[in-house]
Computed example of a mutant assay.
Amino acid sequence: MQSPQYLRNGEAPQQQQQRLPPHFHSTVSVQKLRRFNTLILVFRFASFCFCLSSSIFMFTNSRGSHFPNWKDFQAFRYVLAANAIVTLYSFAQMGISVWEILTGSTVLPETLQVWFDFGHDQIFAYMLLSANAAGTTIAWTLNGQDTCTASNAFCIQSYLSIAFGFAGFLFLGFCCLLSGFRVVCFIIYGFRFLVL
């Protein structure tokens, strides 16, 4: 009579086959993951709204040929471009978040999706911060000059656009923190969320 083969921790082959499959999630874990993805969706939606508002305010910031125009200032063009890019990115990421909430799986393979989200959140957050910082510098410079005296509405609309851009950066920064948490969980546990 052959002795049974014992594998890990003294378990017989029949006992090891009864083990749970990898990445098994309890109902509580699935609910936590859904709440986590919903929180990311809320932050992405807020970033989308603020960056869209910033883009619209900057794009419509012209009063005619005799008044200043956002196209006349390179920093304001940068503000518009950065906010428009982050608006499109946030819109795409909202779709990805909705997919994850509904299906429980990622659009791309999990490893690629985790690093894609983290890397792009970082890149676009820094781009948005630098654009709005450059816009703030020009706005403060124009404050003491004839440009704001001749067209006060131009300067006020520029301030609003930059303020919305900074708010968009704030919410994109929250997304960076959450996507960073997902990367850490993936490195430690092999899954994009802490499974308990």
Rank of each mutant, 00 (worst) to 15 (best):
C49G: 08
C49S: 14
F50W: 07
F50I: 04
F50G: 01
C51R: 01
L52Q: 06
S53P: 00
S53W: 03
S54H: 01
S55T: 15
F57T: 02
F57G: 00
F57Q: 04
F59G: 10
F59A: 14
T60Y: 03
T60R: 12
T60M: 13
R63V: 00
R63E: 13
R63W: 11
R63Q: 11
G64I: 11
S65I: 09
S65A: 13
S65E: 10
H66A: 15
F67K: 09
P68N: 08
W70V: 04
W70E: 05
F73N: 03
A75L: 02
R77C: 12
R77L: 10
V79T: 12
L80E: 06
A81N: 05
A81W: 05
A81K: 02
A82C: 05
A82E: 02
N83T: 13
N83M: 04
N83L: 06
A84T: 14
A84N: 01
V86I: 14
V86C: 10
V86N: 05
V86Q: 10
L88P: 00
Y89F: 15
S90V: 06
A92I: 12
Q93C: 07
I96A: 14
S97Q: 07
V98M: 07
I101N: 05
I101P: 01
I101A: 07
L102R: 09
T103S: 11
S105Q: 07
V107L: 15
P109H: 14
P109W: 08
T111I: 09
L112T: 15
Q113N: 13
Q113P: 02
F118I: 03
G119C: 15
H120Y: 13
D121K: 08
Q122A: 15
I123C: 13
I123P: 01
F124G: 04
Y126G: 12
Y126A: 15
Y126H: 09
Y126W: 15
M127Q: 08
M127F: 13
L128T: 08
L129N: 08
S130G: 07
S130C: 13
A131G: 11
A133W: 02
A134L: 08
G135F: 03
T136F: 06
I138L: 09
I138K: 08
